[in-house]
Each structure stands twice: as structure tokens, then as C-alpha cells.
Computed example of a mutant assay.
Amino acid sequence: MEGAIHEEWHAHIAPSEAILGVEAAKERRQAGHRLDRTVAAAKAAGASWTDIGRAAGISRQAAHERWADK
């Protein structure tokens, strides 16, 4: 009985959970764009890849590989 109730409850909330996932993905994409713009501004202001990587929590090389072409 408990399993059936759980399945019915899950079927009922599945659409809402899916929408929450879409909203979270949108927020991550927007945050990624903001980060890209901020890194570009930092680089234009003379920040080093070492400093940018440190601020982003990644290595200098990873920062360079991620943002050098943007």
C-alpha cells in the first residue's frame, strides 16, 4: 500500500519537479554568462590567468583554456 501511495504522489509531482529543473538550468546558464563577462572584464583590466583561476576556484591553465577565446 505504501509503495502505491508513493508512486501516485511521485506521478503527481513529476511535472513540477521537471519545471524546477528547467528553472535551475536557466539560472546556471545565466550565471555562466555573467561569469564569462566578468572574466572578460577582469582580463581587460589586466588581471592574470593565475588570479582569475584562483578567484574561480580553478587552475591558471583551466581558466585560460575556458576563457581565452571568449
Rank of each mutant, 00 (worst) to 15 (best):
M1T: 13
M1W: 12
G3L: 14
G3D: 03
G3N: 15
G3I: 12
A4M: 03
I5M: 09
I5C: 11
I5R: 15
H6W: 14
H6Q: 13
H6Y: 11
H6L: 08
E7S: 11
E7Q: 08
E8G: 05
E8M: 08
W9G: 02
W9C: 05
A11L: 06
H12E: 10
I13T: 03
I13H: 04
A14Y: 01
A14C: 06
P15Y: 00
P15A: 03
S16Y: 12
S16T: 03
S16D: 04
S16W: 07
A18W: 00
I19P: 00
I19G: 00
I19M: 07
L20C: 09
L20N: 09
L20P: 02
G21S: 02
V22P: 08
V22S: 04
E23G: 06
E23V: 05
E23Y: 05
E23M: 11
A24T: 07
A24S: 10
A24V: 04
A24Q: 12
A25D: 07
A25R: 12
A25E: 04
K26Y: 09
K26T: 15
R28H: 12
R29E: 06
R29Y: 10
Q30R: 13
A31S: 05
G32Y: 02
G32Q: 12
H33F: 07
R34K: 09
R34E: 07
L35Q: 01
D36M: 14
D36K: 14
D36E: 15
R37F: 04
T38K: 15
T38F: 07
T38G: 13
V39D: 00
V39N: 02
V39I: 07
A40M: 01
A40G: 00
A40W: 01
A41I: 00
A41V: 02
A42K: 00
A42C: 08
A42M: 14
K43F: 05
K43G: 00
K43W: 03
A44C: 04
A47Y: 08
A47P: 03
S48Q: 03
S48V: 02
S48L: 00
T50R: 14
I52A: 15
I52N: 04
I52S: 08
G53M: 10
R54Y: 02
R54D: 03
R54G: 01
R54L: 02
R54Q: 11
A55T: 11
A55N: 06
A55G: 07
A55P: 11
A56V: 06
A56P: 01
G57T: 04
I58F: 03
S59F: 01
R60G: 00
Q61W: 09
Q61A: 10
Q61N: 14
A62L: 13
A62S: 13
A63I: 01
A63M: 11
A63E: 05
H64M: 06
H64C: 13
H64L: 08
E65V: 11
R66S: 10
R66Q: 10
R66V: 00
R66K: 15
A68C: 05
A68N: 14
D69V: 05
D69S: 04
D69L: 09
D69W: 07
K70V: 12
K70N: 03
